[in-house]
């Protein structure tokens, strides 16, 4: 079975990393939540940048 590996995204403003594997449980985002499944109006818990201000970390 093909499992898509978890990815990491970085906030352009404050460098905060969103790791899909860990999620942001304290923000109500469960571990394993894919970045695309986070609501579009979600903002960075550190600096309030938009979801669109996160970029994929290679």
């Amino acid at each position: 079975m093909n499992v898509v590996p978890y990815k990491k995204y970085c906030c352009v403003t404050c460098d905060l990393i969103y790791d899909e594997e860990i999620g942001f449980p304290e923000e109500g985002i469960a571990p394993g939540t894919r970045f695309e499944d986070i609501p579009d109006d979600w903002t960075c818990p550190e600096c309030s940048a938009s979801k669109s201000d996160f970029f994929l970390v290679e």
Binding site: T13, C14, E46, C47, S48, A49, S50
Partner: peptide, 10 residues
């Protein structure tokens, strides 16, 4: 703080 400036910029 950072966040009000972010909303202001938008």
């Amino acid at each position: 703080f950072i966040a009000p400036a972010t909303f202001s910029a938008k």
